[in-house]
Each structure stands twice: as structure tokens, then as C-alpha cells.
């Protein structure tokens, strides 16, 4: 339960928080139980605004992936509150949380995580199908997005027929097709060569980033740091610095 001070603080800054894409207050997360219990995140305070790309950087094991899992509602914080698009995630029922995620969050994964049984355009269409559209209708919309990503000639190709860069473009299309307001990218270039990685980030900057959208990129790939509009560095489960001018990290 939040303390009275915290509640007052939240009340005064509620409107401000609701204007943010993501707002974390005192977020901690433990894994394991009893003697094996480990605290991975320690009281994270973090605000992410709309527009541009926010990079979460830090060494392996510092808690980056855990933090984005919490922001995406895939994990529940041990302590603290997380607001995404003004919604307090912990106040949502499990069904509402799934619905919220389906409508508002797009994912891009390190290993692409495309479904091998589906071709490129069907993979890109999955979020729309999840929202209830028919596969044929979803595929039409997904084809448009894939075309914008330069994959118009590969719509019926299966993942195993595509290069790593092409697969990641399909994954980007999948993350954009339902027009989510938040896109979470987990090491989007880690499985790609330098050229493909830079091409993917250029696409992300061009298509994903917009004033109405927040793109959160988890990476430790220094080659792409130049694409960051703001960078938040994590170290041992704590925010270490807030190096960019726009970033609003409180630690």
C-alpha cells in the first residue's frame, strides 16, 4: 500500500503522469522465494514521454529486460506503481491488462519470434487477429505496413526464407500494424550484422517514432546509441544516470 505522502505526491502530479507514456514510481521486483529471493530492480522512478526513442542501456543482468517486462504488464512489480498511457497497470484486472496490452503495446524481440508456420504477412497481421479481425482482413492491412518497410515483394515468404534483417522488418511490421502508442524493442539489433542493424534502426526512427508514440529500446549495442533521443542507464537494478536532456529519470 502506498504511504499517505506518496498518495499526496501522486495526487499532485497525477495529471502530469497521465500525460506521460510511462511513469514508474518506486518500482522494485524480486525473483525467487526464501533464501533464493533476489531483488533485480530497486525502487525505480522513471518517466518516459511521448515522441522519439528512449534507450534503456546497461550491462547484462542489470534489470533492463525486467523493467520493460514490467512496463509491458508481463510482470507485476513487487513494490511501486507503474502507469502506462495514464493507466495504473496494477488497477487493471488480468483480462483488462491483456486487452490493454493488445491495443496499446507493440513488441520487437531480439530473436524476432516470428511464427514459422505463418508467412511474412500473416506474421505481421497477428496483432490485428488477436484484436478480433479476420485473418484475411488483417493480412490486407499488414501488407500495406510491410510494403512501407520495403518488404512488399516478400509477403508470402516464410521466416526461414528470409534473412535476419528481413525477419526483423517483419517483426517491426507486426509491432506497428495495430498502431500501438508504445513500442518495446528488446535488443532489436543483437541478432543482426552491423549493416542490417543500422538499417533496422533507421526504419524504426522513420516509421515507429512519432510525437504520439513512445519507443523504448533495450540495448547494449553501442553501434546504435546515436539513434537514441534519450538514454536511461541501468546498473545493478538502479537507474545510474539520466544523461540526455529530455530524459526524466529520477533515482
Amino acid at each position: 500500500m502506498l504511504s499517505e505522502d506518496t498518495q499526496n505526491q501522486e495526487g499532485s502530479s497525477g495529471a502530469e503522469e497521465r500525460a506521460l507514456a510511462v511513469s514508474c514510481r518506486g518500482v522494485s521486483r524480486d525473483f525467487g522465494v526464501g533464501p533464493t529471493q533476489t531483488r533485480v530492480l530497486h525502487g525505480i522512478d522513471l518517466d518516459i514521454a511521448f515522441g522519439g526513442q528512449t534507450f534503456l542501456v546497461g550491462p547484462s543482468g542489470c534489470g533492463k529486460t525486467t523493467l520493460v517486462s514490467l512496463i509491458a504488464g508481463l510482470l507485476i512489480p513487487t513494490t511501486g506503481r507503474i502507469r502506462v498511457l495514464g493507466k495504473d497497470l496494477q488497477s487493471l484486472s488480468p483480462a483488462s491488462l491483456v486487452e490493454f496490452r493488445a491495443r496499446n503495446i507493440g513488441f520487437i524481440f531480439q530473436q524476432f519470434n516470428l511464427i514459422p508456420a505463418l508467412n511474412a504477412v500473416e506474421n505481421a497481421a497477428v496483432p490485428l487477429v488477436v484484436q478480433g479481425r479476420s485473418l484475411s482482413a488483417a493480412v490486407k492491412l499488414a501488407a500495406i505496413v510491410l510494403d512501407r518497410l520495403g518488404m512488399g515483394n516478400y509477403l508470402t515468404y516464410f521466416p526461414w526464407q528470409l534473412s535476419g534483417g528481413q525477419q526483423q522488418r517483419v517483426a517491426i511490421a507486426r509491432s506497428l500494424v495495430h498502431n500501438p502508442r508504445i513500442i518495446i524493442c528488446d535488443e532489436p539489433t543483437a541478432a543482426l550484422d552491423a549493416k542490417s542493424g543500422l538499417a533496422v534502426m533507421a526504419l524504426m526512427t522513420e516509421l515507429a517514432a512519432s510525437p504520439e508514440r513512445a519507443v523504448i529500446v533495450v540495448t547494449h549495442d553501442t553501434r546504435i546509441f546515436s539513434y537514441a533521443d534519450r538514454t536511461i542507464s541501468l546498473m545493478d537494478g538502479r537507474i545510474e544516470t539520466s544523461p540526455s536532456s529530455d530524459g526524466q529519470a529520477h533515482s
Binding site: 508481463l74 491483456v98 496490452r101 493488445a102 513488441f107 519470434n113 497477428v126 496483432p127
Partner: peptide, 13 residues
Amino acid sequence: LRHFAVLKAIGTT
């Protein structure tokens, strides 16, 4: 299983 997890993450109940 991984694909089911992806579908779960994307918002499948």
C-alpha cells in the same frame, strides 16, 4: 510454447 508465449505477450488471452 515460445510462439504461444509471443501470442500471450501480444495480447491473446
